[in-house]
Amino acid sequence: MKLEIRNVVCGYGFKTVVNDFSATVSSGEILCLLGPNGVGKTTLFKSVLGFLKLQGGAVLVDGLDVRNLSKKAFAQVLGYVPQAHVPPFPFTVRDVVVMGRSSYLGAFGTPGKHDIEVAESCLESLGVSFLANRVYTELSGGERQMVLIARALTQEPAFIMMDEPTSNLDFGNQVRVLRHISKLAQDGLGIIMTTHFPDHAFQCHCKVALMQRNDVFIFGSAEEVVTEKNLYDAYGIEVKVKDTHFEYFTIRSCMPIIEETDSSP
């Protein structure tokens, strides 16, 4: 399947934040949204998910405008993994994950045996079934992130959108979450995620949409988009992009230059 964000214009009320943004992601691909704070990543995110009305353009799934889909049908196409936050009530993890089944239930429905099984298999596929009986509000940030991913998976969507899935995580958990994201893509899920780390684009072999100020958007493979020049244009900092060769593979990474050098433009 293919999710296409076509010439999208979005913002709040009459104010336009993002003008004419386009990108596509297919099943099995990861699209990484990069860009400085305030450039409109969150606004774009909310608009694609339908929380904000589009001011122009369209979001299409296999050519079909998602505005024609019911709320339930949309939830079964596109899942949402928000940034982990603490809800006001101490639900168990199983209760939280099974909520993702809402779109499969009738107006007065409550989750049945099958829904609980789906929830548990989603936890299992992420290797966190041991959390099922724990209290969600007592989990660590990394664990909560995994639970929210599991919840989105119970929607059985073709695509999921993740809002900074690695924020507030320690180094190890960041890598673990990224590893799971890569695996989900290999299993055929299409993923759109925002991140503050250009390195993630290389590590997960992502497509990248780099959002710069003044509505300049660069869309392409990580190798094409994440370059020293583009990063400088987007963030205003000097970065070296280097390949590191290991015995069997090569990893490209970004190294910001902290010390001021004379050569900086």
Binding site: L78, F91, M99, S102, T110, Q155
Partner: peptide, 22 residues
């Protein structure tokens, strides 16, 4: 009859909407 859905709502409007709740 709607009581189970209140669980989903308690996660906030956006999340509930993304899970397919009106």
């Amino acid at each position: 009859l709607l009581r189970w859905k209140i669980n989903v709502l308690s996660f906030g409007e956006e999340e509930a909407q993304a899970m397919g709740v009106n």
